[in-house]
Design a protein around this nucleic acid. Structure first.
Lengths: 147, 147
DNA sequence: TATTGTTATACTCTATAACTATA
DNA sequence: TATAGTTATAGAGTATAACAATA
């Protein structure tokens, strides 16, 4: 396989470009699946909560890499929209635990369906092994950086 | 090597997370290198112009995957700041050709220095081959999608 | 004292559409 | 008629700091 340039600046630009490709394909289809006007970040927030069942806000904030104030406001908006509920943790009164409602889970499913088509399309030219390798390296970089 | 999950939704979330890690490390150091207050997108714009020498706006817009109106305004701001110049193409009066000034090139160098440290740090745990493979797959995905 | 989450604020980024000018 | 780039505008995303409540 031809080797790619590991020049760090180009690598950073290319990671951004890939993310933008995904957004650029999601955007025009928003009317079809974004029934609650959650937006791109909101979608990722719901996806992240859905992945984990019942989570505290701090974990979601860490997973998304955004500021807690930003996530806090999104959560309030989504609570008002009936996409999620929260309850105070029984063991720590400072902590709110989030769960998706039926409506929230439905929204997550619509997003996943569209995202699957888009991502599969983008990675179409890769073999199964190459996809697995790319995904594995990505996971390792993220995990190692967490420590 | 352990295989990564190729579940498309997780892949998309992870690509976003990686981009956010880079931004999160750049942000607090902005005062040290962002002397002209160009911001993250502005930095990528300058990097993209620097990569190519003399470019028309449309190429830059395509490379960054943003809307042309957004890039148009940034370019005007940077022209006023003396970071770049533009001249009308001799062969097509509609086209503006962009070039960095000395000040713009210096700004690009500062950004590259910081970005190199951050990206190298993130990919630290990978072997040279793994880095090259990751970069190559990324380039292929972006290229194949262009057609 | 430290941590969880909220509020306020200022700024940057994004999408859309309507526009001017050149081709 | 089509393309390159601009302007206007509304909305979404971001960082920071100061804050209240709980630990």
């Amino acid at each position: 396989m031809k080797k790619g340039s590991t020049e760090p600046t180009l690598l950073a630009l290319n990671i951004d470009r890939l993310m933008r490709r995904i957004h650029a394909e999601l955007q025009p289809r928003a009317a079809d699946f974004d029934h609650h006007q959650v937006g791109p970040l909101g979608g990722m927030l719901l996806l992240t909560i859905g992945e984990r069942g019942s989570v505290d806000i701090q974990s979601v904030v860490a997973a998304l890499g955004r500021d807690k104030s930003q996530i806090s406001r999104l959560i309030q908006r989504f609570e008002r929209k009936g996409l999620l509920t929260r309850e105070t943790s029984p063991t720590d009164g400072r902590v709110s635990l989030l769960s998706l409602t039926k409506s929230g889970r439905d929204q997550v499913e619509s997003i996943k369906d569209v995202l699957t088509v888009i991502v599969d399309g983008l990675f179409n030219g890769l073999s199964r092994d190459e996809k697995a390798m790319f995904a594995a390296i990505l996971e390792r970089v993220l995990m190692e950086d967490e420590r």
